[in-house]
């Protein structure tokens, strides 16, 4: 079955390539779209730092807890752009090697993710996943060796081995006057197929953002500036969280605690489909 799918994909690529070649080269038929992620606390770009850092950006939660991060990573996948005709352009949504990325605050180059060869048009909306949909969340190194390697690198550690899936977020840092450790990881533990899970928790969240102005793909390659406000982690629409012994360290890996954080930053998939994300601006 996999072979058949690959075969179909190959034929589509062939058709696509052939069609493209016949077009007049002077008029762009496609161009890149860059997603630029700005990870902030209430709009202030986050500076990471260790426990005693004086440079790290310190945030105060709704419950008055100060906290800062030493590590901040999350996975973006399943990117789709909606054009002004209401047609959705899906970007390598079944291909983690070419359609997913790890945003890592400590690596500047990961803060911009370039979508290649997006068809010309005016785009009004962007959708993407925080995390990876269950069907693709299998640590399948054979199908997606490049993403597997990136996510599993020693300085990234986005493999969740016991669940044979990826970590969707990995946040390390410190909270409170005594700089206690916070370590908040999320990932899915579901078994089965979507709609018919037999057990577990789905930590994937689908995000939908309206663009502040249309992104015009043509001779120019637009850049969509996306803010991710990590203030929401503890002080979200869904949950106001006070960190303590029971939920700040890896015991948050218990899926029941984890979901509170996930709903805050990724929305609940129902009446909140933006989570911590918003579009700051579009550069055309």
């Amino acid at each position: 079955m996999k072979n058949i799918k690959k075969g179909i994909a190959a034929v589509f690529v062939a058709i696509f390539t052939l069609t493209s070649c016949t077009e007049d080269e002077s008029v762009a038929t496609m161009n890149n779209v860059t997603l630029a992620f700005n990870n902030t606390f209430k709009g202030n770009t986050i500076v990471l730092g260790d426990a005693t850092s004086t440079e790290a950006t310190v945030n105060t939660s709704a419950e008055g807890q100060v906290h800062h991060f030493s590590e901040l990573k999350y996975v973006i996948s399943n990117v789709r752009l909606l054009n002004s005709d209401g047609i959705e352009v899906a970007y390598n949504v079944s291909d983690l090697d070419n359609g997913a990325t790890v945003v890592d605050q400590s690596k500047e180059e990961t803060l911009e993710y370039v979508l290649n060869n997006i068809p010309v048009g005016e785009y009004t909306q962007i959708k993407f996943g925080l995390g990876i949909e269950t069907a693709l969340n299998t640590l399948d190194e054979v199908s997606f060796p490049s993403f597997y390697a990136t996510a599993g690198a020693n300085d990234t550690q986005m493999h969740w081995e016991w669940g044979t899936g990826y970590r969707f977020t990995k946040i390390e840092g410190f909270y409170g006057a005594d700089n206690n450790t916070l370590s908040i990881h999320s990932g899915s533990t579901v078994v089965g197929t979507e709609g018919a899970y037999t057990q577990g928790v789905d930590a994937y969240r689908d995000i939908t953002l309206s663009l502040s102005e249309n992104a015009i793909v043509g001779n120019n390659a637009p850049k969509i500036m996306i803010d991710a406000d990590f203030d929401k982690l503890l002080s979200g629409e869904a949950n106001t969280i006070t960190l303590g012994d029971s939920n700040a360290t890896p015991s948050i890996h218990t899926a029941n605690n984890m979901v509170l954080f996930v709903d805050n930053i990724g929305g609940n998939g129902d009446d909140n489909i933006t989570g911590m994300f918003s579009v700051n601006s579009v550069e055309n």
Binding site: T189, Q199, G200, V201, T249, P250, S251, H253, T254, A255, N256, M258, V259
Partner: peptide, 14 residues
Amino acid sequence: NANEAGRSRVTGDP
């Protein structure tokens, strides 16, 4: 080990 939560690590059920 702080990673241990038993079955709730999987199910999310307290």
